[in-house]
Design a protein around this nucleic acid. Structure first.
Lengths: 144, 144, 144, 144
DNA sequence: GTGGTCTAGACCACT
DNA sequence: GTGGTCTAGACCACT
């Protein structure tokens, strides 16, 4: 789930999806400290303002909470929010794909075949637990 | 497959998909005259410049050819191009949706369920033949 | 209701309050075109990005809707949103003031007196209808 | 009057208001030793540097005076300063609230109603005497 | 160190 | 012309 600056989806939204996916997958857990704006901007090679905007959205949708001067912590119900976010995004993409196919009169089993082909071609996530070494895990310090 | 001006996919690309779908579905057939830029801009409530840009793309990918002073005609192999275009677009969307779901660690059968849900919720195309009045159908006049 | 760059309330929030007040007061009416980002940034002597951020919030809370390439239009229920926004902001400020006074053990009638004093000292809005000459009113062109 | 780290009013100003309120209410009396920076930072769950900054302000406005190596003592005229501080803060908030309401054209009696609503909803201070254990009260030892 | 806000200036899609 | 996004760099309050 790298960031593609040339994709039509805004970078800040890609970042939201990126972080949300990591929370949904349990890489970041409730109470965990997310990477700082500056750290993530260096990692993703993106301007800090763009990361900042993503983090605003991440807080707004309830994935994490800010502690001034400290950082962003995954919220208690962050996993649920992330899963719902992913399901909703996936559903939207699937709907768009089906709509495109139906409008071009593709047969139902052809659509099914394309879906299975797509499913098979998506690489299994490679930025999961191993991207955060155990020793690097932030201490689980829940905000008050 | 209406045009959504608030979607992050550029409107001109949405128009390409729209016309491509109609060609793929046989609403416009090889040799048919596509609606004029002005007519389509009125129909889709979109600026003529944007339609013009879509038509450039439509020509570029081989869906239709321009005859100066006359209009755009669906090319001989337009149906094949349109079908491949739709399959490719659908596959891309499916891949994106699967990628999002996988990155959030959704189970394979959950992904399948979301896909079926999406498939069921997409309405059958309603912008087909009736968007081109019978009397407006150009005679099958292939460009030289 | 001018913008004060030194106030601790962020400028973009002040702009939201400014525009919201004008909508609540009927200076901008549903369907009206709001001033462009650039125009307002010149008028308020504020960076366009800051106005842009305010406009994002204005759209998010339902005060106005964007039409790409055209501008922001006051939404149908914008007046209601604006009035609720103003009531909520006023209530918050009143609560804060009362809390401060109560915590310092000020007597109830002293608090009342301070409130009346404040009410008397607030100048009647001077940026109302007269700030937008009738002839300058944008045509009421409701978005589709 | 607890400290809200997410409020846009700087925390150090909130602390000034907090201490000022306690002085105005007679919880801390002229000559009393205020809690140490460290103690208050623990009590309010705020960084010592921030409390330090608040104490600088508290001294600056004449609420208390520092005796090096000993601590901060409520000044002789501290009660008057605190009461004026509270009145001024309350007046400012009331003015802001009225300004917001007036700018959105809310009727005078609606504003009055919102004020009364706010007045009724503010809980009676609960962080008063019990925040300073009886045994901790410093003897009334006026600084030289 | 942390996030939050702001200015300055650029490019994009769309009208 | 319009709004939307992004980079670059600064300053702020807070830890």
């Amino acid at each position: 789930m790298g960031i593609d600056p040339n994709h039509h989806v805004p970078i800040y939204q890609q970042i939201v999806g990126h972080i949300s996916g990591l929370i949904g997958a349990g890489v970041y857990r409730p109470g965990d400290l997310l990477p700082s704006v500056r750290a993530l901007s260096l990692e993703l090679v993106v301007n800090p303002n763009t990361v900042q905007r993503a983090y605003q959205e991440i807080e707004r949708i309830g994935l994490a909470r800010t502690r001034r001067g400290v950082g962003m912590f995954v919220s208690e119900n962050g996993v649920g929010v992330a899963v719902r976010h992913a399901e909703s995004a996936a559903r939207d993409r699937f709907r768009e794909g089906v709509a495109v196919a139906v409008s071009a009169d593709l047969a139902a089993d052809r659509i099914e075949a394309i879906f299975n082909e797509a499913k098979g071609s998506v690489p299994v996530r490679s930025d999961g637990p191993q991207s955060v070494a155990e020793g690097d895990r932030s201490p689980t310090e829940p905000p008050p």
